[in-house]
């Protein structure tokens, strides 16, 4: 019996390493018919994976994960009191300067596949924002780096638009023709209301902030729908495919439409992403540790340079504008800014 187990256990090592011959495989299977042997085999496997588990556990970055969780729960990390005062000053001295918004209106007819529907596509490049009114009277304010596609004439049943990016909608009331915003993963159905939707293709989330009225959110297939009340925020996670509804202060979600850049305990990667789009620049981050900082501030009309100075006052970060690369066609490439830990 002892001899037998030993022989079999040898086969186990071979099996794990994928070195089992056909006859050995048959031998192993034969041996496993005995329930008693089966238990030994399962225990062996269990032991093997437990050692593997331990090795994997050691590779997991526990500290980083804890920081992420703390950022979600408690917001920003401790900032020195003096720096905190400087930041408060930064918020107080907001010049009431409305930045001149210029519009990049790229309107062209496209696609005449079904029902002869002709679409307009409005594309707003990074660094700019723009507002316009749709054929039904709905007011739309489109944030930097966003696209909105809508039919020149709305259909008979509903008013359907497609959004990639972030937009503020003030939907003209029309109970007979619901206004539907399609994003990559969810649909938002509206009767008459004001709300903000952020659905950038590269984002892991789609955020809908409802200020007034009622909207109904559903999956693309129209299933799993639920209603939102004013003051609520619905966050759809593209990874987990779930939506979480919370009641929260919506200011930071709609500040952009008044030309303000607002951060409230936002992790640095989100801050960088927003600055990217707002100023049409790119950031290079040397130390991933930087991405763990969280940040709160409101900017209104400040230049990028001013914003970065403020940022480096309240977080241990320094920044550097890299020389712009000259492209072949005599144009300059996008401005890259390097962030380093102080």
């Amino acid at each position: 019996m002892g001899e037998n187990i030993s022989n079999y256990e040898l086969l186990f090592v071979k099996e794990i390493e994928g070195n089992l011959s056909v006859s050995e495989k048959a031998e192993l299977e034969e041996w496993l018919r005995e329930p008693q042997n089966r238990i030994v085999y399962e225990e062996q496997k269990k032991l093997w994976t437990s050692v593997d588990d331990l090795r994997k556990m050691k590779t997991i970055d526990k500290k980083k994960a804890l920081k992420k969780v703390e950022a979600r729960l408690f917001g920003r990390f401790s900032i020195h009191p003096i720096k905190r005062m400087e930041r408060a000053a930064a918020i107080l001295f907001i010049p009431l300067l409305l930045s001149t918004l210029w519009m990049f209106y790229n309107s062209y007819p496209s696609g005449t596949i079904k029902n002869e529907t002709v679409y307009n596509t409005i594309e707003i490049p990074s660094g700019t924002r723009s507002s316009f009114t749709l054929p039904d009277g709905t007011f739309v304010y489109l944030n930097a780096g966003s696209t909105l596609k809508y039919p020149v004439v709305f259909g008979e049943d509903d008013r359907h638009v497609e959004l990639n990016g972030e937009a503020w909608f003030e939907v003209k009331k029309d109970n007979l023709h619901p206004f539907i915003v399609s994003t990559s993963d969810i649909n938002i159905k509206v009767l008459g209301t004001s709300f903000n939707c952020s659905a950038y293709a590269y984002d892991t989330k789609i955020e809908t902030a409802l200020v007034e009225g009622k909207v109904e959110i559903s999956g693309k297939n129209g299933k799993n729908s639920f209603l939102m009340e004013p003051g609520e925020l619905a966050v759809f996670s593209k990874q987990v495919k779930t939506i979480e509804k919370t009641r929260t202060n919506l200011d930071k979600y709609i500040a952009w439409k008044s030309g303000k850049l607002m951060f409230r305990d936002d992790p640095m990667d989100k801050v960088i992403e927003k600055l990217d789009r707002w100023y049409n620049v790119e950031f290079q981050v040397d130390d991933p540790e930087i991405l763990n900082y969280t940040y709160s501030a409101t900017f209104s009309g400040e230049s990028l340079d001013q914003v970065l100075k403020m940022l480096s006052l309240s977080a241990p970060i320094s920044f550097q504008f890299l020389p712009r690369e000259r492209l072949d066609d005599k144009e300059y490439g996008v401005q890259i800014i390097k962030l380093t830990k102080k």
Binding site: L10, V13, Q44, K46, L47
Partner: peptide
Amino acid sequence: VENQITKALKILRKELKDYLF
């Protein structure tokens, strides 16, 4: 080598029996 790994597994399995399984 295979023999030694097998031997290790056998000893560990007995030692950890009550806990892992």
